[in-house]
Design a protein around this nucleic acid. Structure first.
Lengths: 201, 201
DNA sequence: TGCTACATGTAAAATGTTACATGATTCG
DNA sequence: CGAATCATGTAACATTTTACATGTAGCA
């Protein structure tokens, strides 16, 4: 029952078409929600039949006409009521962790490659989000209260990607060096490794 | 198609009943996978009909007889083949982020309360995982290769909870102080407020 | 000319959740 | 005595994914 509010949350910041919603779920808000287009179009139709959103057709030159949806007053009211309810912690499903959990069944080389590949995915996303942050920072964040929320979630996205990336590095180090002592005492292994020279791969 | 491998991953580390699997998805591996019991029992039945797992009935004194499942050779083989495939990045759904995204629609007090509540949830989980880590650290991690995977995922869980908790604090600070300048220049507000001195960390 | 982006949908299949159902034991 | 834990399931419902379906415009 939350796709409803995910869509309405985006519409609360401005009118959008189904296609634009899809792009957002696929991009800038992709790190906290995802939905495919059949889901979105169906949900929009349902929300409209419930009176929570309304659309107007917008004709474009050289492009198909699109349906631009906005929140109705009722929708806005409903969204705010939901916002006041406590959030449930997410229960997520991370394939990478399942594979890591079983990494003892494959070679250390395979495990390191897996970690390296994943690190790259998160590094690329981190960069995207950081660029977005720089852009958002160019304007005032709290003057327009509506802009603060998206900024806060972006900070979360940046943290998440950075933290995941760092974990990939830490895990690969443990696998490579067969580190069997507590970290923290000496965060880095004794050998002169630094800056992760991937030349050796 | 991944609940299959999530279950098989746990079975790869030792035989388990459906109920025990449920407890794991609910507890120690809960931060990377979740499944409800109807799902688990159905999937186990399906996996058994496919020959990937097998069970034997284990009678207990004073407790109902349980079905303890183990991976078959075929199941082991299938799991390893899947492990070699690259992992897809997870597409997750975080209610908390949806609410944060729209926090401009509610009062700063409500937003701070939301963040504070969430911080507490993650703090509690962090503590659990850290205790688990201390326990795992008491034995050798890499001597038994099978134990390393679970240790690595636990490290990820700890990082995740800590990072989420820190974000809750950072976000609450921004909301409270209406911070409208880049962080990093001066992380702390000029005023002498310091309810949660993080200086000691 | 073929690929990508824009734009919207339907249908079927797979997954996941919630409610219903049962029954023994242990702890407070 | 009531609630929680152990233990396994079914049925109904909701959600999500994948495949099918269509058509225009711009770019290489």
């Amino acid at each position: 029952m939350s796709l409803k509010y995910a869509i309405m949350s985006l519409l609360a910041h401005g009118p959008l078409s189904g296609y634009e919603l899809m792009k957002l779920f696929d991009g800038s808000v992709g790190y906290f929600w995802h939905a495919t287009h059949p889901q979105i179009y169906k949900e929009l139709a349902r929300l409209e039949s419930e009176g929570q959103v309304a659309h107007r057709a917008v004709e474009q030159r050289g492009r198909p006409t699109k349906k631009v949806y906005s929140l109705s007053e009722e929708g806005h009211h409903d969204l705010v009521a939901w916002l006041r309810l406590p959030a449930r912690v997410r229960q997520f499903k991370d394939e990478m962790m399942v594979k890591t959990f079983c990494s003892g069944l494959v070679s250390d080389e395979d495990t390191c490659e897996l970690l390296e590949q994943h690190r790259e995915l998160h590094r690329a996303r981190l960069q995207e989000y950081q660029e977005l942050e720089r852009f958002l920072r160019s304007g005032p964040i709290t003057t327009n209260r509506l802009r603060r929320g998206p900024y806060l979630t972006l900070l979360r996205g940046i943290r998440y990607e950075r933290d995941y990336m760092e974990w990939c590095e830490e895990a690969a180090d443990i696998v490579r060096h067969r580190l069997d002592r507590p970290r923290g005492r000496s965060a880095r292994p004794p050998s002169g490794r630094q800056a992760r020279p991937r030349s050796t791969r």
